[in-house]
Every structure is written in structure tokens, then in C-alpha cells.
Design a protein around this nucleic acid. Structure first.
Lengths: 238, 238
DNA sequence: CGACATTAAATTGTTGACACTCTACAATCC
DNA sequence: GGATTGTAGAGTGTCAACAATTTAATGTCG
């Protein structure tokens, strides 16, 4: 069998992409992009028709997304895009802080100069964007910075858990945006993190990383309404 | 409306138990009990026949279990009970330590006397079992103790993540057992944890809880073979 | 005898159809 | 008129059959 043919490419493609997996990723991005509105209901028939497949694979994809905490399955009622209430956001932020702090600790203990150089480069980019109050540039850099911290620890479980939590946080009404000088404040915390990691001070790195996420939570809470007590997912249409 | 009828119970039962959810829980316990051997392959037809249902609901249940990290789905090849290699066990232990440390920190900060009393009671029970070297009694108490720590923080996300990791750890050949005086050593660490929580010392509580899990990892590594480099799931039959 | 191609069996992937449940609207009764 | 009951529609739950792929077995050639 000649493996250099286009068939080989298709095979490797299919090895990582079964139909339900593809649908899972596509629906996930539809949720994260806001194309499926939070709290709204998902229609299996519609979704299947839109992708040109039957309902079976769609249902499997939705089961995966349920386990990831992105949708909610109510028997005989349907699938709802999960809505995070402020109380749950607080819980997620706490766990995220614990994981991020652990990541900082690991990096400080390892002291990999390559990782450190990369972190400093990213920090410089963010500083430049922060100085210009260029939020549109800062935001993706900030995201990339955090993701690199957890990814470069080499602990794939840690990275996976962290990423899952970040995804869930987007289910809280889209207003996770920074305003005013929070941009600079945030970046000063980044600097402290990198500093502690560079110094190989595991304790300080943990605290800097942990506190950074906690500060983010505080900034979010500061401009959020008081915690309500409603918890039921609501039936509003997409 | 009178909700006290027996119908009401059935309704609430069905609200939380669709067929795929029931299957998911059943298959999960089959895995954790060892009735489905780690590394083995799962046959959809067999499983569906055993439960007297069709393959659809079974496949949905397996998708959920994949997201929980209990099985592995290889397109066109089948479903395999996930096998954890020692490297992954180490990673999971690390994350578990971070979460457990965070739980201890939260409990110390809260300082709930009811929780504290419960912890002390459990600690006493474990001490008694440890003194008698009664492992069969100690093991479930130990499990319950840890679970209560994360559950009583009130952070449901934290508890869910922690429990997921504990489940995954059972996918490493069943030898998570304690031997010799590790029982007493372990319980001394429990005492330190409770002490720090009682003192309201968040820092010390974090360290005690974190170190306790790390110690568990060390105890496990001490009697494990050297890390191999094979990672592929193997095809062994159930 | 071993390696390779071929064929058959077993298993997964996907579909369309049917049964059941829930929701919304209309008709009926008090 | 308001509440209740009945009924049609929409949508989910489950299944059995068919298609596609992989795996095992068989036969063939060097």
C-alpha cells in the first residue's frame, strides 16, 4: 500500500476526528462564540440538519459537552446551554486560583530558562499593549500567557483541568472584560509572578499566581450585581 | 398541588435518571469495581445485550465516561478502559494535592465548629482503627475523611474535580493499598491537618493538606516500578 | 517456512423510523 | 370569566437495520 497518497492523510485525519468529536468541537465553539446563547435551548433536529447528519452523533457530542460542563441535559426536556450564576463563578475562580498557583509553584521549582525567557517575552508584549491601553491586543496576549503558564508545567492533567475551567467561565454573561487601569494592575501582577518564578521561590510564585486569579475574581465581583438566589436553568429560546 | 404522592417520587426519579445516565453510573461502577479490567476493550453489543437495551444509550454513556477520563474512545477501533501509567498518576496526584490543599485552606479560613467537630470525630475513629492495624476499617474511613474535607468547603466545583481525580487514580493497577506503619504515618498527617484547621491557620492547613497528598504519592512511588515509556492503550480482552 | 494478498467475520458508525413525553393551544365546564 | 380538561404539535428517547471499517483467518506465492 502506498502511504504517500492522499488516502493516508484522510486516515490520520479520521483517527482523531470521528463525527461526534468533530461535532463536539464545532458545537463547543458555537457556545463559546456566543452563536448559541447561554441559557438557551438546543434543538437536536435543527442542529443535526444544520450539520447534515442524523441525531445520533449530535446526541453523543452533547453528552461529552455535558460532562465538560458546557451544557445541561434535562431528561425529556432537552439540552440547555449552561448558564453560570455568580455563585458558581466564584467557586470556579477559587479552583482556578488553586490550580494556577500550583502551576506557578511548579515553574519556580523547575526553573527552566527557556520557559522563563518565553514568559518574559510575553510579559514585555503585554506591557507594551498595556501602556497603549490597547485592550484588543492585550486580551489575547493575556489569555496566551496564562495558558502557557499551565501548559509549560508539563503536567497535562493540570493544563486540561485549568482549560476546562476557563471555558466554563465564558458561560457567565460575556462581561469578563477589563476596564480602565485594571489592565496595568493586572500586568503588574504578571510581573510579580514572573519575578518569583525567576527567583525560584516556589512559595512566592504560588502566592503571586494564586492572588492574581483571586484579584481577577475581585475585579469581576466589583462590577457584578449582588448574588441572587435563582438557580434553575431558564427556558428562554435561542 | 399535592406532591406527597408516590407519583411525585417517580417523577423526581426520572428527572435525574435517563437511561444513558443510569448506564453511565452502572458502567462506571463496573470499572471501579474491576468488573471491567483496566486496559481491556469494551464491546458495545455485549454491553447493550447485558443491560437489555440497544447500543444508542450505551454509546452515549460511554461518551460521558470518556469525558470523565475513565475510558478512551479510538475511532473505528472501540472503547478501552483507560489505563493510567505511573507518569500520569504522578500528574494526577499533583493536581489532587493542589485541590486538597486549597480545601484545607478554605476550611481553616471558615472555621466552622460543626465541620471541625466532625473532622475530629472521624480522626478519632481512624486513630482507633490505626492502633489496631485494622486496615479494612481504616480504608473506608480514610476515604470518607478526605471526601468530607472537600465536600464541607461548600465549593461544589472543587469537590467534583477532586472526586473525578480520585476515580481516575483507581485506573492505576489496584495497588493503592497501605502497608505496615504507613497507616499510622498517614493518620499523624491527618492530625496535623485538623490541628491547623482548628487553629484557623490557612497557610499551615494548606501545607498540611498538600503535603499529605504528596506523601501519599511518595509512598506509592516507593513501591512502584521505574517509570516505563510505553503509553499506547493495549488490546487485551476483557 | 515466512511474508503477503485475499477473503470472511466481527465490530463500530450512522441512519431513519417509531414510541413516548412534554408543551401549547383550544374547547369545555363550573 | 377563570380554571380544568382534552387534543394536536413538536421534540426527545429508543431501537433495529444498513453501511463502513477493522481485525482475524485463510490461502497463495516467493
Amino acid at each position: 500500500m502506498s502511504d504517500s497518497s492522499s488516502t493516508s492523510r484522510d486516515v490520520t485525519f479520521l483517527r482523531l476526528n470521528s463525527l461526534p468529536m468533530l461535532l463536539e468541537r464545532e458545537i463547543e465553539s458555537m457556545i463559546l462564540d456566543g452563536r448559541l446563547s447561554v441559557g438557551g435551548r438546543v434543538n437536536e433536529n435543527q442542529l443535526a440538519a444544520a450539520f447534515g447528519v442524523s441525531r445520533g452523533p449530535v446526541r453523543e457530542a452533547l453528552r461529552s459537552l455535558e460532562a465538560l460542563g458546557l451544557v445541561e441535559l434535562l431528561p425529556n426536556r432537552g439540552v440547555f446551554i449552561r448558564r453560570l450564576e455568580i455563585e458558581q463563578v466564584i467557586e470556579v475562580y477559587g479552583v482556578r486560583a488553586a490550580l494556577f498557583g500550583y502551576a506557578g509553584k511548579l515553574l519556580a521549582q523547575r526553573g527552566d530558562p527557556v520557559v522563563l525567557a518565553r514568559l518574559r517575552a510575553m510579559l514585555d508584549d503585554m506591557s507594551a499593549a498595556a501602556a497603549r491601553h490597547d485592550f484588543d491586543r492585550y486580551y489575547p496576549l493575556n489569555f496566551e500567557f496564562h495558558d502557557y503558564v499551565v501548559a509549560s508545567t508539563g503536567n497535562s492533567v493540570l493544563a486540561a483541568q485549568y482549560r476546562g475551567l476557563v471555558k466554563q467561565l465564558r458561560l457567565y454573561r460575556a462581561g469578563n472584560l477589563m476596564t480602565g487601569n485594571t489592565l496595568e494592575l493586572s500586568n503588574e501582577e504578571h510581573a510579580r509572578m514572573v519575578e518569583a518564578i525567576a527567583a525560584g521561590d516556589a512559595e512566592a510564585a504560588f502566592r503571586a499566581c494564586f492572588d492574581h486569579v483571586e484579584s481577577g475574581k475581585e475585579r469581576l465581583l466589583a462590577r457584578s450585581p449582588a448574588p441572587a438566589s435563582s438557580a434553575e436553568p431558564q427556558e428562554k429560546s435561542a
